[in-house]
């Protein structure tokens, strides 16, 4: 019964919260309408979804979120400094990172994290989902960059999604 009515509880909760936020009210009418939409929309869109590995460790996921937010700040200060500096000193580079995690959702999260943090943009994924092509704005130490990505972002993601 629960599976039939609420196929994706997380999705429903998100829709409900976003609805209340958009309307900026918690009046009974909006709660009712929000709940109705939160039940109906997942029922309509459920068939479009691909199966994803779920989040197994919610606490770890939250910690990961805060770590990424902190890294975004640091990364931006670095990029700001690089933009102001003369560009002759810039050493842009392409780097290939071998991937240990599997599944579309974990790889998407990893690629997004990489794009938002230290001077790197993820550019492409190989067909067999085993390598990620990055562009680095200013490369100092390739080995160090790859090991940072693997230990700082990939390992926690592997634990969060258990894949």
């Amino acid at each position: 019964m629960r599976k039939l009515l609420l196929p994706t509880p997380g999705h429903s909760l998100l829709l409900f919260v976003v609805w209340l936020l958009l309307n900026k009210s918690v009046s009974p009418g909006h709660i009712l309408l929000g709940a109705l939409l939160a039940i109906l929309i997942p029922l309509l869109t459920n068939r479009l979804r691909n199966p994803h590995p779920g989040i197994r460790r919610p606490v770890k996921a939250l910690l990961y979120l805060f770590r990424v937010l902190g890294d975004i700040l640091v990364a931006n200060l670095q990029v700001a400094r690089l933009i102001i500096r003369p560009h002759m000193a810039l050493r842009p580079s392409f780097v290939e990172v071998p991937l240990d995690i599997s599944g579309d959702l974990p790889i998407t999260v990893l690629a997004s994290t990489i794009t938002l943090t230290p001077g790197t943009v993820s550019a492409d994924v190989s067909d067999d989902r085993s390598r990620l092509l990055l562009h680095v704005l200013h490369l100092e130490d390739e080995e160090e960059l790859i090991s940072t990505i693997k230990t700082r972002y990939e390992k926690p993601l592997k634990e969060i999604f258990a894949c």
Binding site: P92, T115, L116, H135
Partner: peptide
């Protein structure tokens, strides 16, 4: 490719 970095982050 380097131009891509500026808008996405800053």
């Amino acid at each position: 490719y380097t131009r891509l970095h500026a808008p996405t982050k800053a």
